[in-house]
Nucleic acid binder design. Structure first.
Lengths: 161, 161
DNA sequence: GCAGAGGTACTCGGATACGCGCTGTCCGAGTAAATTGGG
DNA sequence: CCCAATTTACTCGGACAGCGCGTATCCGAGTACCTCTGC
């Protein structure tokens, strides 16, 4: 189980967009140059962010992308969901109801949820909860503490006044 | 991000093997029939469990697989690791050090760990912790409470005395 | 009847094709800005 | 000088190939059991 490459890119893109001044759009090509990533493919990943409602797009000259919501309200969970969809990682196919096992189980156990599914979902919920508890705003603040120069230089590079 | 099908199979297989009497081996074909799954592919997944040290294999007539450890000591994490490897789901490729972003960052921020990686790893650790906290023994006990008949019939079907 | 050698059948193990989804790329639709001509 | 229509150039958006990992399968290596023969 490997997570999509796009998740890492999407997270860094949102963080970078938080450095652009309000009202200023950043093009996909600018972001690709900023991170030295293949332009068309990064562009595709950003479109996933747009479809998920995390970034707003503007076409034409002076167009590009900008955060659609304050960075303090964007969680890691939001980005992960936007890039790789809302489907749970563990999918229970109810094999306990198939074959001999299915014929052996009585009605009580059939009605109850699969206990293995419950256990796996419990772990996945802990993962999602932890992702939802961390906002990109917190990460940006920490980064400002560690390296104020990076944020300052990035703001200038993205054309903020 | 979808988890391997084999994880679900492996979990159910270990649970089923816990119903076999000590010293009795269950063949891969028996397990495939028990769950109505394709024999060769299920066999391959069980081999992953064997490589991970969860089940012991015996060749020849009356051979097959048996749990290598008490079911109370086998956690969901063990099975997940055995099937899909120990690699973390989120892999940080340090794109912050590439392109313009890499040139803008100073030494302090370069030495520090990527904060996005830390956040993602934090969530993944919560997931792993929850998986490691649940043993198949607990699940089997719950299942015995919900449906004692299933456990009883399965023990008979697997040839336990 | 018993012991041992040989044969047999059964099981696991690694090596081998196939398919779907992530990866990577392109060109067209739409839009805002710049330009130019007229009033 | 100001305004408006037109042109232009720029950006996003969806549609299109390529590749790697998971899916699915097969046959060979090894072993325990069974059988048969000789004592």
């Amino acid at each position: 189980m490997r997570m999509n490459q796009g998740v890492e890119w999407g997270l860094h893109v949102c963080l970078a967009l938080s450095w652009a001044a309000p009202g200023v759009s950043v093009t996909a090509d600018q972001l690709a140059e900023y991170f030295d990533l293949p332009k068309p493919y990064l562009h595709k990943q950003i479109r996933s962010l747009a479809r998920g409602g995390l970034v707003a797009s503007a076409t034409g000259p002076r167009g590009g992308y900008a955060l659609a919501r304050p960075v303090e309200t964007i969680t890691l969970m939001d980005v992960v969901t936007a890039i790789q969809g809302p489907d749970p990682a563990f999918l229970c196919t109810e094999i306990r109801h198939r074959g001999v096992s299915g014929r052996l189980s009585d009605e009580r156990s059939s009605d109850a949820r699969c206990l293995i599914e419950q256990g796996m979902l419990r772990a996945e919920m802990a993962w999602r909860r932890e992702l939802a508890a961390q906002t990109l705003g917190q990460i940006r603040d920490q980064l400002d503490d560690v390296s104020p120069a990076l944020a300052r230089h990035s703001r200038r590079w993205f054309g903020s006044p």
